[in-house]
């Protein structure tokens, strides 16, 4: 297994700044079939969280195709709007093995330019072991 208990509590490098644009929010809303209403759709922060997760997987040498999403939670401090410049920092909150799979709990804090917390995105990733 490429992942082990030593990862728990580790924080990964913060993602590059992501500027939220109206165009980007409209495209995201259109892709999920919703209407753009001046602020980000509720699941938009996954764009930041996913980038942070990719950096984590790359660093740990985990293949994306072996990852299945187990659980996702968002806690919002405020709506995301065009002009926000956001970054995400992922840390590993927990790790256990069930039936040959690694269950990795992660938490990504998404903050704005001033450093204020905008959203916490908690994801549980299931790393499917080789058959």
């Amino acid at each position: 297994m490429p992942v082990d208990q030593s990862l728990v509590g580790r924080a990964y490098p913060t993602t590059a700044p992501h500027t939220v644009t109206e165009e980007g929010l409209r495209a995201f809303a259109a892709a999920v079939g919703g209407e753009y209403a001046g602020r980000a759709p509720a699941t938009y922060p996954i764009v930041l969280a996913f980038e942070a997760m990719n950096a984590f997987l790359e660093e740990e040498g985990v293949e994306l195709a072996r990852i299945v999403h187990g659980e996702q939670r968002f806690a919002y401090e405020r709506p995301i709007r065009p002009g926000d410049v956001l970054t995400a920092t992922l840390s590993v909150a927990g790790l256990r093995q069930i039936a040959g799979n690694d269950i990795i709990r992660t938490s990504s804090e998404i903050t704005d330019e001033s450093g204020a917390l905008v959203c916490t995105a908690e994801a549980t990733l299931v790393h499917r072991g080789a058959a």
């Binding site: 209403a37 699941t43 187990g70 659980e71 968002f74 919002y76």
Partner: peptide, 28 residues
């Protein structure tokens, strides 16, 4: 999974137009 979750969020948006979402969570 996030696409399905986005559809759930879309339903919430339809039911509560313009309401601020404070939290959203699910297992897949």
């Amino acid at each position: 999974g996030m696409y399905t979750m986005a559809l759930a969020a879309r339903a919430v948006e339809t039911w509560f137009p313009g309401a601020e979402v404070v939290s959203l969570g699910t297992k897949f």
